[in-house]
C-alpha cells in the first residue's frame, strides 16, 4: 500500500463510447490533443531543442569557448545578447552548448534508468521468490536514502575516475559520463516497481500461460510477450524522468560537484552565481530560466502522455 494508489486526480477519459472503433494510437492522439498545455509545451520543447541544437549552426563551439578577459562580466548588449561571463565568454553561445549537454544528460540518464529499471522490475515480477525479495530490498534501500544526498555521495565517489571522452570531434568532460551514470543508477527504483507490478498482473494471463505451455523460453516471454504490454507506463515515467534528470544535474552542478568546466551545462553555468546575484544577474538568469522552461514543458508533455497512454494511472 502506498500513497501512489490514492485516488487524487480523476481524469477518466470519456471518449470512445459512441465513436466508431479507433486504433490505439488514434485514441492516444485524440486524448493527447485534448491536453492543451501539453500541445503548447510540445511546441515550446521543440523550440528549445531548435535553440540548443540549431543554435550550433550560428555559434560554433569555438565561439562558446572563446574568452577575452578584457570583456569580462559585461551586461547584455547587441553583441552579446545574454552578456559575458567571468572570463569574457559569450553566455548565449554557452547556453546553446550547455543546453545540448543538459538535454543529452537528461535523455541518456533516462536510458540508463529504463534499462536497469525494466530488467530489475521484469526479473523481480516474473520470477518472484527470493530473487524478488532481494531485488526489492535493494530497490527499497535506494528509495529510502533521500535522492540528492545519494547523488552527491556518488558524485564524489566517481569524481575524477572517468577520463575525458571524444565524440564526433568534441571533447566531453568525464564528469558528464559520471552524472549520467549516477542519475541513471539512482532513479531506476520507481520504474522497477511499476514494471514489477505490471509483470505480476500480467504473468498469470491466459496468453502467457499459453506461451509457457508451448515451451517459449522465459526470456522470450518476458521481453516479447509481457514487456510490450507495459510500454505505456514506462513511456510516461521515462518522459517525466527526463525532467527530473535535468533538474538533478542542475542541482549537483550548482553545488559544484557535477559537470566540470570546460564543458558547460546550464547547471554549472550557475555554480558561482551566488557571488554574482547582484552585479551580474545575467550570469544565472538565462541558464536558470532555460532549465525552468525545459523542465516545465517536459512535465506538461509527460502529463499529456499520461492522459493519452495510461489513463488509469494517476499523478503521484
Amino acid at each position: 500500500m502506498s500513497v501512489l494508489d490514492t485516488p487524487v486526480d480523476a481524469k477518466i477519459p470519456d471518449i470512445g463510447l459512441e465513436s466508431p472503433p479507433l486504433s490505439l494510437s488514434e485514441m492516444a492522439w485524440r486524448r493527447f490533443r485534448r491536453h492543451k498545455l501539453a500541445i503548447a509545451s510540445s511546441f515550446l520543447l521543440l523550440f528549445l531543442i531548435l535553440f540548443t541544437f540549431g543554435g550550433a549552426l550560428i555559434y560554433s563551439e569555438a565561439d562558446a569557448n572563446f574568452n577575452d578577459t578584457t570583456k569580462r562580466l559585461q551586461a547584455p548588449t547587441a553583441e552579446h545578447p545574454f552578456g559575458t561571463d567571468t572570463i569574457g565568454r559569450d553566455i548565449l553561445a554557452r547556453t546553446i552548448y550547455g543546453g545540448q549537454i543538459s538535454i543529452l544528460i537528461g535523455l541518456t540518464a533516462v536510458i540508463v534508468q529504463v534499462v536497469v529499471g525494466v530488467i530489475i522490475g521484469a526479473i523481480s515480477g516474473y520470477y518472484g521468490g527470493w530473487l524478488d525479495s532481494l531485488l526489492m530490498r535493494i530497490t527499497e534501500a535506494i528509495l529510502t536514502i533521500p535522492t540528492l544526498f545519494l547523488l552527491l555521495v556518488m558524485a564524489k565517489f566517481f569524481s575524477g575516475k572517468v577520463p575525458d571522452l571524444n565524440f564526433f570531434g568534441r571533447t566531453f568532460s568525464g564528469s558528464v559520463v559520471v552524472i549520467i551514470l549516477i542519475i541513471g543508477l539512482t532513479s531506476w527504483p520507481r520504474l522497477a516497481r511499476i514494471v514489477r507490478a505490471e509483470f505480476l498482473a500480467l504473468k498469470e494471463n491466459d496468453f502467457i500461460l499459453a506461451a509457457r505451455a508451448t515451451g517459449t523460453s522465459n526470456t522470450q516471454i518476458m521481453f516479447k510477450h509481457i514487456l510490450p504490454n507495459t510500454v505505456a507506463p514506462i513511456v510516461v515515467t521515462a518522459t517525466l524522468s527526463v525532467a527530473g534528470a535535468i533538474i538533478f544535474e542542475a542541482y549537483i552542478s550548482f553545488l559544484g560537484m557535477g559537470v566540470q568546466p570546460p564543458t558547460a551545462t546550464w547547471g554549472n553555468m550557475i555554480t558561482g552565481a551566488t557571488t554574482y546575484i547582484e552585479y551580474a544577474p545575467w550570469l544565472w538568469f538565462f541558464p536558470g530560466v532555460l532549465i525552468l522552461l525545459t523542465v516545465l514543458s517536459i512535465n506538461f508533455v509527460g502529463d499529456g502522455l499520461r492522459d493519452a497512454l495510461d489513463p488509469r494511472s494517476r499523478p503521484e
Binding site: 572563446f66 578577459t69 567571468t86 568532460s173 566540470q260 568546466p261 570546460p262
Partner: peptide, 24 residues
C-alpha cells in the same frame, strides 16, 4: 578553472593543445 580556459586558448595559439581537468 577560469585560468585553465584562458591558458587553453593562449597555448592553442602556439600550437599546443591543453586538455583541462578539475578535481575536488
Amino acid at each position: 578553472q577560469d585560468t585553465q580556459a584562458v591558458a587553453q586558448q593562449n597555448l592553442a595559439e602556439c600550437g599546443i593543445r591543453l586538455d583541462t581537468l578539475s578535481y575536488a
